[in-house]
């Protein structure tokens, strides 16, 4: 079936299979940083924002994204640049594979939570796994980013 999706403010027409999830559809549309890994809905790598809220695109039916605002990393270039700077300064970019999903979740958190505690930050980010180990650098970067006006 043919559906219309609004990705980063741009309307796209795409043909999907019945029951198809959003992640492969976005990949077909050229959003290559919307990656899949675990395929069990537990790693957060495929995170995109749907109406500003982080969701797993690997577990969201593409048809349910119709008439909603889909945001990938490309749609948040200003915030991504700010966060990328603190992330690299803290040596937390590591291999970078999980960074797109992680970054989008952090951006959503910044908009949703006002002056979060460390525990609230950790809780918000529980769904983003990093295989490089060492979440401390990421946490330092997030703390700095949250303080950036």
């Amino acid at each position: 079936m043919e559906i219309k999706l609004k990705v980063n403010g741009i309307n796209k027409v795409v043909t999907i299979k019945d029951g198809e999830y959003l992640q492969p559809v976005l990949k077909r549309l050229g959003y290559l940083n919307v990656r899949k890994a675990c395929e069990t809905g537990s790693c957060g790598l495929c995170t995109v924002l749907l109406n500003g809220k982080p969701v797993l695109s690997c577990s969201t039916l593409a048809i349910r994204a119709v008439e909603k605002e889909i945001t990938t990393l490309e749609g948040e270039s200003i915030e991504v640049e700010k966060f990328a700077e603190v992330l690299t300064n803290e040596g937390a970019d590591q291999c970078g594979y999980c960074s797109p999903g992680f970054t989008l979740t952090v951006i959503a958190m910044k908009r949703e939570l006002e002056s979060p505690t460390i525990e609230e930050i950790k809780h918000y980010l529980t769904g983003n796994l990093c295989r490089c180990t060492g979440y401390m650098g990421q946490l330092r970067a997030v703390k700095k980013y949250m303080e950036v006006k």
Binding site: G41, S42, P54, V55, L56, L125, T126, G127
Partner: peptide, 9 residues
Amino acid sequence: IVGIQLRSI
């Protein structure tokens, strides 16, 4: 339960 992204679904 897992993470915010899953709980949003």
